[in-house]
């Protein structure tokens, strides 16, 4: 029983990190809340299904989904977001419009039903319980995403430039950094992570126009409570909410889990209006 609870908690934390890291990076870097985040995930899911149906192995489909959605994100940044920098509320509204548009478009093209793939994964049993082996793949990918993002930000020159722009865009551009390029790349990277998240969810949920809707609420809560530092914020908020969600879902149901996460989040907002990392000046 302890094993099951622990497993559920770790799974919830990983799922939260998976679905919210892309959103957190775009928000932390650019102060843009991308309301089309869920739909970016949905596009990733469809890209994955199409690739697998075309005969590609699953890992290649994941990579293709991340790449495709990343490129799509760059297009969106060039066509919509770049006109709205500094107008936070307008980016929120425009990305909401984009989200409706994408749901409508995908429903028209692929129909409202869910598309699934026939990928088989065995079960693992321990502690007298059976667990789908795929959830361990999901946990691994989720942790991998965080670690890779951390490595890029910490160890590479690109990461250094991005972190500098994040701290002070004016100084960075005074030092010769092309701010537009950094924003474009960051938005693309965030979108790619969303696409990857959507693809990774395919073996569990399939791909459907409403895929984004299932996860956006959690992702938004996570990012808001996480605060302005994407990595630390995501890890901290995911751990907190994943624990609550996993535990409550085990005792009651997943909806009660989500409701209790929301209640804790609203109370936390009263105590920490800027999120968990709101007081931290620098970091990731």
């Amino acid at each position: 029983m302890i094993a099951t609870t622990l497993y559920l908690i770790i799974y919830s934390i990983s799922l939260l990190m998976l679905v919210s890291l892309g959103l957190a990076i775009i928000f932390g870097m650019m102060k843009v809340i991308n309301l089309a985040h869920g739909e970016f995930m949905m596009l990733g899911a469809y890209a994955c299904v199409l690739c697998v149906n075309a005969g590609a192995p699953l890992w290649l489909a994941f990579a293709a989904a991340a790449l495709a959605v990343g490129l799509f994100g760059i297009v969106v940044e060039r066509l919509i977001i770049r006109f709205l920098y500094g107008r936070i509320v307008d980016t929120l509204l425009a990305t909401w419009g984009l989200s409706l548009f994408l749901v409508g478009l995908v429903t028209t093209v692929f129909g409202p039903q869910a598309w699934s793939i026939s990928a088989r994964f065995g079960n693992v049993s321990f502690g007298g319980m059976n667990f789908s082996a795929y959830t361990f793949v999901l946990i691994a990918i989720s942790i991998g995403m965080v670690v890779v993002t951390w490595l890029i930000a910490r160890l590479t020159t690109v990461g250094l430039i991005v972190r500098g722009t994040m701290q002070d865009a004016t100084v960075a551009s005074g030092l010769g950094v092309n701010r537009n390029l950094v924003y474009m790349g960051t938005f693309g990277y965030g979108a790619a992570l969303a696409g990857l998240a959507g693809a990774v969810l395919v073996p569990i949920t399939g791909a459907s126009p409403s895929l984004g809707l299932f996860f956006v609420a959690k992702a938004f809560i996570n990012v808001i409570i996480g605060g302005h530092l994407p990595l630390i914020g995501t890890i901290a908020a995911s751990s907190l909410f994943g624990t609550i969600d996993g535990f409550v879902s085990y005792v009651w149901s997943s909806v009660v889990g989500e409701v209790s996460v929301l209640i804790v989040a609203v109370i936390l907002l009263r105590l920490l209006p800027l999120g968990i990392t709101g007081r931290l000046r620098s970091g990731l």
Partner: peptide, 23 residues
């Protein structure tokens, strides 16, 4: 009360209200 007395920023308020209606 929780949102306004917490003095959360405008954009947090927008997203929080959205999340509440979703839930």
């Amino acid at each position: 009360y929780f949102m306004i007395y917490g003095r959360i920023s405008d954009i947090y308020l927008s997203v929080t209200t959205l999340v509440v209606t979703l839930i």
